[in-house]
């Protein structure tokens, strides 16, 4: 690893190549056709090959290019943000907009270095009520408001 001058570009190249390879392999299931009558596989496979070639160029160039080390990755905020959204996705159907909204906002707030649980809870509650008013009653988006097990839910 010490020999790669620009790991950012190197991994980016591999990243694109993995997409290219996947596209190339998966599109073998679709008819290729020829230039006159292109099948559904023609365009994706061509793109797959191009991604492989240019991705390889990027990676190879990165080995000898100007030195540029990786910036540190702090994964905690990303993971909390994605987790809060994931929980929202799972919870929405069962628990309704109010509960899952509060959960989303509360959990997401933990991603900040200055998390304050009272403020997060209040802001979650206020926004959830506001969202119900705007999206469910205003824009008539079909969403359940309250948990499914509670009677009288919309």
């Amino acid at each position: 690893m010490r020999r790669i001058n620009n790991p950012k570009d190197f991994w980016a190249g591999l990243f694109f190549m993995s997409f290219g390879l996947a596209a190339f392999l998966l599109s073998r299931a679709y008819a290729m056709g020829d230039a006159t009558r292109m099948g559904p596989g023609y365009f994706p496979r061509a793109l797959g090959v191009l991604l492989l070639v240019f991705g390889a160029v990027l990676s190879v160039r990165a080995v000898r290019s100007a030195k540029e080390p990786f910036a540190a990755w702090r994964l905690r905020p990303l993971l909390i943000v994605l987790l809060s959204l994931g929980i929202f996705c799972v919870a929405l159907k069962w628990l309704g907009l109010v509960v899952s909204g509060i959960a989303l906002i509360f959990i997401a707030s933990m991603a900040s270095t200055e998390f304050r649980w009272k403020a997060a809870l209040v802001s979650g509650a206020v926004q959830s009520v506001f969202a119900v008013g705007l999206f469910v009653y205003g824009l008539k988006i079909p969403l359940s408001v309250w948990p499914a097990f509670m009677a009288g839910g919309r």
Partner: peptide
């Protein structure tokens, strides 16, 4: 710290409402 959860929440509902399907989120 108050702003970004709001953006997330609005986006989540916005994505849902494109086809009323949680898949988009």
């Amino acid at each position: 710290r108050l702003l970004f959860p709001m953006i997330l929440f609005c986006c989540a509902i916005g994505a849902y409402s494109t086809s009323n399907n949680i898949f988009d989120v």
